[in-house]
């Protein structure tokens, strides 16, 4: 499930005060999260969690739940 930390990072990157983000939410459903801003959101998450995404990891992501799962996996690998 999407964490509060992840939610805050995404909203801050998109300069949104509030938006109902859920696991099944897709980027195109969120105001401001268009194709050009996608890398801005990913960069903000990388900075927050101090990790790096690779192209082959982010291309198949289909919703926020996938993104959270990827972050969780990379954090676990780093430990």
């Amino acid at each position: 499930m999407i964490s509060e930390r992840m939610k805050k990072v995404i909203l801050r990157a998109l300069r949104l005060k509030e938006f109902d983000l859920r696991d099944e939410t897709r980027a195109y459903e969120v105001p401001g999260w268009d194709s050009l801003n996608h890398v801005v959101v990913l960069a903000a998450i990388e900075k927050e969690y101090n990790l790096r995404f690779r192209s082959h990891e982010v291309l198949p992501l289909s919703n926020i739940g996938d993104l959270q799962a990827l972050v969780d996996r990379k954090m676990a690998d780093a430990r």
Partner: peptide, 20 residues
């Protein structure tokens, strides 16, 4: 006003435009 700003941005999305 905050709620309205969000609604305006969502309206832009419906025509595939990101209102910054």
């Amino acid at each position: 006003k905050e709620a309205l700003k969000l609604a305006v941005k969502i309206a832009g999305m419906a025509v595939d435009v990101t209102i910054q």
